[in-house]
């Protein structure tokens, strides 16, 4: 999987770094023998996972589902909002200012409110994931839509291009690198949102599983969830990275990879 997502040299580096860190962790635990309640060894974590793999994978599936749903909605709504913001001075002054103001409050603190509004089902989790992910997407996309060379827009005016043609053929492709940058930040935020949603209320997902394990002082259980979150959070990021490479072979950030990558 990693091999397909990364250029061979990058995959090698990632695997090497992970392997060395895991070895150091395992060795550290065996040498210093901290109480298992504080820090279990990687081998013990794998062991705990293998005892009830079905349970953990089910919880993981739920969390990832909430994450991806919230993220997908954030991308669609975020791009629409960004387009609206750059198309109108009025919307820029109202929505954009409001968004920037909202962004500065700790959004996680709003999670309990969402539970009051939407109950304890899937809706508040998707909504919190969406709320966290949408900010970087809107802000980066607005930046990208505005970064078009003014002379390019002059050229479009000389050609009597319609606003829709300018958006579709010039502004949007020009904003794609920024959109991807926003999405890469957004996907991690969406995962945070899903977990926070499960913390606040619910009976499913890795967030809920962490709370259950915490209630039983089951450090191993918590670590299994954390490791799964780490692995799959990274995978989500690299899936986007891969998509970016497919969509933007022309972009400066990707050009070196054709030659230098292999």
């Amino acid at each position: 999987m990693l091999k397909r997502l990364l250029a061979p040299s990058e995959a090698r580096d990632v695997i090497l770094v992970l392997a060395v860190s895991l070895l150091l962790w395992e060795a550290g635990v065996r040498i210093f023998q901290p109480p298992p309640l504080i820090l279990p060894a990687p081998s013990a974590i794998v062991g705990a996972f293998l005892q009830t793999p079905g349970l953990f994978m089910r919880q993981l599936g739920f969390t990832l589902g909430m994450t991806c749903l919230g993220f997908a909605l954030a991308v669609v709504l975020g791009v629409l909002l960004a387009v609206a913001i750059v198309s109108s001075k009025l919307l820029e002054r109202t929505i954009y200012t409001l968004l920037v103001a909202l962004n500065s409050i700790p959004k996680v603190a709003l999670a309990p409110l969402f539970v009051i509004w939407m109950g304890t089902g899937t809706e508040p989790k998707v909504a919190i994931a969406l709320m966290l992910a949408i900010f970087p997407i809107v802000i980066d996309t607005v930046l990208g839509l505005r970064s078009v060379d003014p002379d390019m827009l002059h050229l479009a005016r000389v050609s009597r291009a319609s606003p829709l043609a300018v958006l579709a053929k010039i502004k949007f492709p020009c904003a794609l690198p920024s959109l991807f940058a926003g999405m890469k930040v957004g996907i991690s935020f969406a995962l945070v949102g899903a977990i926070v949603g499960e913390f606040v209320a619910g009976s499913k997902g890795l967030g809920f599983q962490i709370l259950v394990a915490q209630g039983q002082f089951d450090t191993l259980g918590v670590f299994v969830c954390l490791v799964l979150l780490g692995i799959f959070g990274t995978l989500l990021f690299f899936v986007l990275d891969y998509a970016e490479r497919l969509c933007l072979p022309w972009h400066v950030s990707q050009r070196g990879r054709h030659s230098a990558g292999d």
Partner: peptide, 19 residues
């Protein structure tokens, strides 16, 4: 001001396409 995601031919055709 050529668009990086278009080939040279597509760039030359751009103003006609925009019109």
């Amino acid at each position: 001001v050529l668009l990086d995601w278009r080939t040279i031919l597509q760039n030359v055709l751009l103003s006609v396409e925009l019109a």
